[in-house]
Design a binder for these strands. Sequence first.
DNA 1: ATGAAAGCGCTAACAA
DNA 2: TTGTTAGCGCTTTCAT
Lengths: 345, 345
Amino acid sequence: MQSPDSQKDITIYDLAARLGLSIATISRALNGEASVSPRTKKRVFEMAASLGYRMNDSARMLRSGRSNTIGCIVPQLNTHRMSAIVSAMEETARQQAYCLLVMQSLGSKEIEAICANLLFNKRVDALMVVPSEKTAGNMQHFDPFLKRDIPVILIDSGEEKHPFVNISTDNHKAGYDMTRHLLVRGCRQIVHITSSGSLPVYAGLCAGYRQAMTESGIPVKDHHIIPCALTREDGIHTIRTIWQQRKKPDAIFAASDECAAGCISALKEKGICIPGEIAVAGFGNDPVSLMTEPPLTTIDYPGHHIGKAAVHQMMDRLQEKTSSRTVAAIVLRSGLIIRKSTLIC
Amino acid sequence: MQSPDSQKDITIYDLAARLGLSIATISRALNGEASVSPRTKKRVFEMAASLGYRMNDSARMLRSGRSNTIGCIVPQLNTHRMSAIVSAMEETARQQAYCLLVMQSLGSKEIEAICANLLFNKRVDALMVVPSEKTAGNMQHFDPFLKRDIPVILIDSGEEKHPFVNISTDNHKAGYDMTRHLLVRGCRQIVHITSSGSLPVYAGLCAGYRQAMTESGIPVKDHHIIPCALTREDGIHTIRTIWQQRKKPDAIFAASDECAAGCISALKEKGICIPGEIAVAGFGNDPVSLMTEPPLTTIDYPGHHIGKAAVHQMMDRLQEKTSSRTVAAIVLRSGLIIRKSTLIC
DNA sequence: ATGAAAGCGCTAACAA
DNA sequence: TTGTTAGCGCTTTCAT
């Protein structure tokens, strides 16, 4: 079972025996408790180092009930937005000696529930979730966390009724601002490509779009709001479909940069001038938004700040800081990034 | 300390008491052991469900010595290549009921060592590492894993001397093939933009480039190999620098798509025709490679397969499958993706 | 400032 | 097929 040269772990018992102390003192010294004399502490640390002692976290966890581990569930990891969030979470967590258990729900409510179960059993100290498309409103799989008073922090979940902390961006304002930006530049036939799912991010953008249009006295046409999966291919396909119709739009506002980039490709293929004949805007400030020709106007999604804020909020909760328990939501600002694709002269 | 409605956890003792069985039987039933009668199993599972029993993983971990957790250290999470690898790892791991503890070394050897320590103490069953630029050859911080016979799997670490399993792509061949591709299309002054760091991925590409050039009887000029950080900005800057010199290259082979995309931007800014006047190729098959104009020829980095292979190899090792212990390296193929940016007529 | 002792919830011999 | 029992390595009262 074990390879010949693998050795038994050094425990606090070994240290205690070698130093003629009790395991209690060793434990205290190792945890830096003030009640241990400096001399003893020094001896303990030196012996620990020389024997190569390693704390057994599972034992501590079992005893203390805390794991110094945060669970994290996202739909998928390999997108710009998600990896920005998770990257920031990990970095922030590590600085506080916390680890991040990352899982992907792959957009499935069932998998999300399985992940939540697994992470609950692993006794994570907190859970951060970017809900999948399918989760909407359905949060029972987090009940065990609630019951045990384990902080659950939701990212970009529009719901206010549930008892979790919600961290999100002001997507409504972003959608509104972007639409205003296009309107101010003279666009009137503004097509909004949104998600066919029900994620609050997209709902917010869309609501902002609607409000800006309505405020400007321009009726929102149903066929100007196009739901899809927001991929590059969807962008290409959408443009091709639209261009088969009589009336062409003078602006496209897509809820993802990839999709907007696809639009740009398809438009250029048709020889249509951007932004001369049509303005194009995206969402997310994805690296691709810098690569399009012309560069893409977009909305800066502050994924890094979101991840950081989530972990900070969680730490506050775990340390029961001032009224952290009363925080219901944190909303981060996401500004416009104006580039050439909408700079109509 | 606890909120009023938080309850004590249900343990196997509770189940045992309610059912008039011993904790051993409960444990066996819960673990699906064959020695427990179907009737008893059913009763146990029903009672567990009705009381909301949750296995305490830390207790099991402490007792069994296994954590069903894999540690993973990457330089950073928010790049296309890394998130592809980690995403695949997580998905593959979850299917085997394993969790992934993800940490970022941020390219620092010190942080990498800290992460390794933390993960060791957390008693991960295996460790997967994409070494940072600075780690090269210096692997002592993984010694504790070796000593305890915990599988360590390195990704894209060119080193063969250490005792870990190494999973990588055939970068030498990829670099060779790409250079051949350019040569066959008539290019002679081929500039290779590589990493200023010492990562084997880039060393492999560069070596392949050198070999192809030499084989074709074209001496490799030192100033044709340009080291940088491979960002978009580096690409732009490199082109601007090169274009101040007398002799212009007829091809650019950059070791990252972002960098190649930067090159394309800078070249178009100068009114240079791609691929007419100069061919451009990248590496990684990053989403941006589809967004450039013209689309970028690149090398497909099979991040997904790497992550999957890493976990599979690890599972084999943990289950001591056939000769899994004798595997020293797994090399995956990474083919060329030819697009318009090098299609010289 | 230090020690003794009681578990945390589970697994795995060994018994029956 | 089920039960008894002894820990896994640590934290944490309660004594001293």
